[in-house]
Structures are given as structure tokens and as C-alpha cells.
Amino acid sequence: MNDVKKIGVEPDEWEPLKAYTNARIALGKTGISIPLKESLQFKMAHAHAKDAVYSHLDVAGLQADLESTGLPVHRLHSQAENRDIYLQRPDLGRLLANDSVDKLRRLNSSPADISIIIADGLSATAINNYTGPVVNRLVEKIQQAGYSLAPLLLVEQGRVAITDAVGGILRPRLAIILIGERPGLSAFDSMGAYITYEPQPGLTDERRNCVSNIRDRGLPPVLAVDKLMYLINSAFRLQLTGVALKDNNGLLE
């Protein structure tokens, strides 16, 4: 404490209030400025978030994680060639690159009940961390419920609405996209899942349902899959997704 005093750092008297919030309160001060320790902790959180934004899908690792589903895995790419274009042109992240369109057409698979799409979004780190536990369990539950599944799709530089581009070709009755959410300082590896009934080009986001903050310290994978199954079953029963489904969904409260 004496050392701290010598260099001018003064703690705040209300440190016990930190128990009530994760906000960066009671940081103390040196002069009128933030002490270095707090400044570096902030920088580290921001560094994690930036690294997550520029992280890449670990394709080999993901393919290994998904092997136990027994489903084929295909790699696709959006029209956003790289991260900087992806960040500035959300429209391109919603469209499939031409060779990816050809690849999907050549699959010539008959329409399945459900298509699962896995995309990097704004945090490939989230996808690398949580695809295994979420997709393996999700596939198992979907198959137990008697729905058919399309091949798994792994999309680089993808946005949520690339679901619709996929839907226009594969014609599943329903699609789920698992995608890395925008990293915050408190969570850089949070996965989101969006469900779209009858996906096709031209849909808007109010036609989808979302389960967000999927990560160990947020909504853990097991609970996330339960919510997704509730939504999937409701969507098939009501033959829709979006605002109307959300209103009836007590589980999401």
C-alpha cells in the first residue's frame, strides 16, 4: 500500500460496490487519470476482441469435430474476399461466391427438413470453440426428433442472411446458422444461432429467431440446443419463424 501511495495511485472508497456489477467502477485514480493496471486490463480485453474479429475458421479442426455427426461437410465462401471487405460490405457477406453456388448445385441433394450452416461472422474464435459441442448435440436431437438433415456447410466471411442464399439452392424447410457474434470487451467468443423457416433470397431479419450469447459463461451449449429444439419444433408446428414465433415462446424469456 505504501508503494502504491508513493507512485500516486489512490483507490476509491466504494470498491465493495463492484460486487453488484461487471461495469468498470471504482478503478481508482492517479492524478485524475486511470491507473495503469486498469488501463492495461482494458487494452487486453480489447485485444481479445480485435483478435476475434480477425480470427479464421480452423477448418481442419472443425471437420474433425464434426466427423462424429456422420454428415458430409462442405466448405463455402461468401462474395466478401477478405475481412476488410467483409467489414465494409455487409451485402457481399450475404451472398455466396460463384464457385460456392456451383458447388451447392452440384450436390444435387434432395431437399431436407433442416440445413445447418456454420459461419465465422464477426468471431471465428466463437465458432472454433463451440461448434463441436453445439452441432454434435443438435444433430443428435434433430435426428431423434425424426427430421432429415442436409450436408453441413462451413461458410467463410458469412453474414446471417447467407442462410437465404443457401436456402434458394438447397431448399430445406428450415435452416439454422451458427455464427460468431460481434465481440464485446466482456465476451469475444460468443456464438449466435438464427433459425429461418423456408429460407430464400429477399427475406429480412424479422423473419428469423435468434438464440444469442452461446458460450460456457453465457448460455452453455447444452441449454442452447434445448432452446433451439424448442424453436425448431415450434417453427414446424406453426410453419413460420420470426416475430410471431417469438411471442409464443416462454422458454426464451
Binding site: 461487471n22 461495469a23 467502477i25 487519470s33
Partner: peptide
């Protein structure tokens, strides 16, 4: 003025109480 410039609800970074004191000074 956001505690530590980190808004834990809206998930973005702004300016802090300390930043305001810096500018005033």
C-alpha cells in the same frame, strides 16, 4: 461518462468519467 469507457449493456466503448476529468483539466 461510462464506467471505464466500457458499456457492458450495449457492448461498445465510449468515454469514461476519468476522460471527462482529463478534458476539463
Amino acid at each position: 461518462g461510462v464506467p471505464g469507457a466500457d458499456d457492458i449493456m450495449l457492448n461498445y466503448q465510449s468515454t469514461s468519467f476519468h476522460d471527462a476529468l482529463y478534458l476539463r483539466r
